[in-house]
Design a protein around this nucleic acid. Structure first.
Length: 819
DNA sequence: CGGACGAGGATTTTT
DNA sequence: TCCTCGTCCG
């Protein structure tokens, strides 16, 4: 236990042992940052620091969980138990719940995800009779988010003549009003959106000095990981918390800052030493992860960025293989090349599926890869944002749970009042909404307390509303005395959701039921892990679970069966991870770098950092691919190789299409550094303006926080809710996996014995022949009666047993060959 | 009121 | 292509 520091290099050890006072650790990719943080905390605990005095903020829940596990292994689980470790959002949600009354929220407030927030905006735009052309939901939402992240409240916004003038210029004069109503509506609904979690922390600390003081005392030691990706709101929270003891350690790498679109300010890390003049600076420059080739290649790219803290990242590992570059003609061929290359890896090096990752710029790119993997029996796992929770059935069930726990949640109520269909239509809901609006009460209060006459309801609607109200009431009364899983199941059953799908015998319905089952299972395992952590806490209720759920992502659930699979994810989600072999696909102009970002220098530099992040995920080897055409926006578009391919020092590259090397170089050269952007694809929202405005907020705010207004003290303090750990295990989901057919394929494909894949010329038909029996997720079984190869890919005419003859494009139809 | 059907949009990245 | 939204009819 005392030799744990010996696992560190000298710099690492120094950084780990320095825990009194401020410190900044600049940690290059693969420099053992997590290790340092882990040992640092372990060391503090060994030195007698109490675990509950330590706050460690990470970027993902997974990172927090893993770090905590490692710490527990070094010291002991008991000693590490009360560490405050988690994402900004989850830690602050926990604090806000216990202080909610001060800000006028219920402590069981709902956390709105992006989709919920957009629904609110959509409803408001409608209510205010604004054109949804000029007031595009996405634009409005991101502007609100931008304002919040820069601590500009609705009141401050309205009072800011400059911002208001800007909106007028942009023909969106109602924006300030919209913002105001949005905030109001969320509060009425007892809900906070993601940005509120940060903004409200600031308001809390600003308006309640005693509360701030309390947390300053509690968090005497603060650590922030991925500091380069913190935004203004996060920065200020940390600054306030650390003010008293100044025991703050931030870790980051400016070269890996990739979240400016979300308001992250790279300045925060650049400014740290000004904020804490006594701060010690540690630079971890040795990369222990990757081969020299990979590190050097990555450096050769990032060196092109102007604004950065210079550091010399180096590797003392093997030189390693060159980075291979593949070219394909279509995105499907690209997928095939990757597939077949994976097979060679498996054959030639002793590589497991789980050692391999495919990284791409946009989620949409996963499609062709997925398809190819499924066809060739490569087990894979897609990590895609929030996908599981965006499934309709999941959102529906969640809405029920939300409503049961928090009656004020109008969004949830609207969603479920007629789901499953129970004869409460728009007209009825409209009348209720009107009655509620007139009285300034929530929809729930309306249906629960008003008479039918007051809501102008008559006939069948009255009884239906009464039944619905009674059902919710009955469920609510059970929540706090029923175990979480049990309660979840009861809601799913009682609401009629399960019943409505059980009636249908379609494969879709079965799949929906499976998803619901997975959600319920995740509740069960959440409850279980909570009980493990805290044996005295016998009653884990559904609202405990709910309060965490919107902060979870796909990353947060890993199932045993998921172990040995190829990982598919966006570059953004790959941050902080590492793999033996990495494929970065879709290296084309307008895709990577993204069209939206490559028009400004800042944008382009961020894309470059993104590429740097992607490349440095690889330990042993990396391969890059690009395609000449790609299926985008519903049709095939031509694309050109990414400028990043040219930016890598060619000595580290191994082009796999030798005869065309010259051509490539020529072509890139001819096109110059800045290919003209294809303007026609540009959407309404003016990105440049957006960026400018972002800066405006920043400048404003630094000078005067006085601008932000917020909740005033209302009631005395209430006892806090028991603390929550971000440990809810989640079901395993392959996003986009809709039909059972697809799921089965994914599971079965865990087959061993990889076989070589021929790289075909016209591979469209994938083993299909006339006369084959096939299975289709929707149409069931059928017999192939004709095959045809067209420009668009192969087509098959299938005579289905039940559905008759259909002609299907093979690249879309998921046909399973049976015999 | 609710289901069927047709039109049109979708793709930046995430807590 | 797939999905969502709006309209229309039973």
């Amino acid at each position: 236990m005392s030799d744990y520091l010996e696992h560190l290099s000298e710099v690492q050890r120094e950084a780990a042992r320095h825990y009194e006072g401020a410190a900044m650790i600049i940690a290059g990719a693969g420099s053992g940052k997590t290790r340092v943080l882990t040992y640092r905390i372990a060391h503090m605990l060994e030195q007698g620091v109490r675990s509950y005095n330590i706050l460690a903020l990470t970027f993902t829940n997974k990172a927090a969980r893993e770090m905590k596990e490692r710490i527990e292994n070094i010291v002991s689980p008991e000693r590490a138990r009360s560490l405050w470790m988690g994402t900004f959002h989850s830690v602050f949600a926990r604090i806000l719940r216990s202080e909610a009354d001060k800000l006028g929220y219920p402590s069981s407030f709902t956390i709105y995800d992006t989709a919920d927030s957009k629904n609110v905006v959509r409803a408001l735009v409608k209510e205010m009779n604004l054109s949804d052309e000029t007031y595009k939901v996405g634009d409005i939402y991101s502007r609100i988010s931008l304002a919040k992240n820069n601590l500009v409240t609705a009141a401050a916004y309205e009072a800011n003549t400059m911002l208001v003038a800007e909106d007028r210029e942009r023909r969106r004069p109602q924006f300030a009003e919209l913002y105001k109503r949005y905030v109001q509506r969320c509060k009425e609904n007892g809900a906070m959106d993601f940005d509120d979690l940060l903004l409200n922390m600031n308001i809390l600390f600003r308006d309640f000095p005693d509360v701030l003081r309390k947390y300053q005392e509690q968090f005497r030691y603060i650590m922030v990981d991925e500091y380069q990706d913190t935004n203004m709101a996060q920065y200020l929270i940390v600054k306030r918390l650390a003010e008293r003891y100044q025991n703050i350690c931030v870790v980051g790498d400016d070269a890996q800052s990739i979240y400016s679109f979300r308001g992250a300010k790279i300045e925060n890390i650049l400014r740290f030493q000004k904020d804490y003049p006594d701060a010690r600076l540690f630079k971890l420059e040795q990369n222990y992860r990757s081969t020299q080739t990979i590190v050097n290649a990555a450096n050769s790219i990032i060196d092109r960025n102007k604004r950065q803290i210079r550091k010399k990242s180096f590797s003392a590992n093997a030189v390693g293989d060159k980075i291979r570059v593949f070219k394909s003609y279509t995105d499907q061929e690209e997928a095939l090349i990757v597939t077949s290359d994976i097979y060679s890896l498996l054959r030639e090096k002793h590589v497991q599926y789980s050692d391999i990752a495919i990284l791409y710029r946009t989620n949409a790119q996963s499609r062709s890869l997925e398809e190819s993997f499924r066809r060739r029996n490569i087990p894979y796992r897609i990590y895609g944002g929030q996908s599981f929770y965006q499934r309709k059935e999941i959102k529906d069930l969640l809405a029920y749970i939300r409503l049961v726990v928090n009656h004020k949640d109008d969004e949830a109520l609207r969603r479920v009042i007629n789901y499953p269909a129970r004869g409460i239509g728009d007209v009825t809901v409209g009348r209720i909404a009107e009655a509620a609006r007139q009285r300034g009460i929530s929809l729930w209060e309306a249906i629960a307390t008003l008479t039918p006459e007051e809501m102008e309801l008559r006939g069948a609607a009255v009884a239906k509303i009464r039944d619905f109200t009674a059902m919710i009431q009955e469920l609510t009364s059970a929540v706090y005395r029923t175990e979480a899983y049990e309660m979840g199941l009861r809601i799913a059953t009682r609401s009629g959701i399960i019943g409505s799908f059980k009636m249908q015998q379609t494969p879709e319905a079965v799949s929906v039921l499976e998803n619901i089952d997975e959600l319920l299972n995740s509740i069960a395992s959440f409850a279980e892990s909570r009980r493990e952590e805290d044996p005295e806490n016998t009653a884990v209720t559904l609202d405990d679970w709910l309060q965490n759920v919107s902060l979870l992502t796909d990353m947060d659930n890993e199932k045993e069966g998921d172990r040995n699979r190829v990982t598919l994810m966006t570059v953004h989600s790959a941050k902080g991870l590492e793999f033996e072999y990495v494929y970065i696909v879709g290296l084309e102009e307008t895709l990577f770098p993204s069209q939206m970002c490559s028009e400004t220098l800042e944008g382009l530099e961020e894309e470059r950092r993104l590429f740097y992040v992607a490349l440095t995920r690889a330990k042993q080897g990396a391969a890059l691919t690009f395609s000449e055409t790609r299926f985008r926006w519903g049709s095939v578009t031509a694309s050109r190789p990414s400028r990043f391919l040219k930016e890598i020092d060619p000595q580290y590259l191994d082009l796999q299409y030798k005869d065309e090397l010259a051509e490539l170089q020529e072509r890139i050269d001819a096109e110059g550094e800045e290919p003209a952007p294809a303007r026609r694809f540009r959407p309404y929202g003016q990105r440049e303006g957006e960026a400018e405005r972002g800066r405006t907020f920043g400048r404003r705010e630094q000078g005067g926080q006085s601008r932000f207004a917020g909740g005033r003290p209302e009631r005395p303090e209430m006892p806090g809710k028991p603390a929550m750990r971000p440990a809810a295990p989640r079901p395993t989901v392959t996003p986009g996996m809709k039909s059972i057919g697809r799921r089965t394929a994914a599971v079965e494909s865990a087959a061993p014995a990889p076989e070589p894949v021929p790289v075909p010329a016209g591979s469209g038909t994938g083993g299909l022949r006339v006369g084959c029996t096939v299975e289709h997720a929707k149409f069931g079984r059928g017999k192939v009666s004709a095959l045809e190869d067209t420009m668009n890919g192969a087509k098959a005419t299938v005579l289905f047993d039940t559905e008759g003859a259909k002609t299907l494009l093979l690249k879309y139809a998921r046909l399973k060959v049976i015999g």
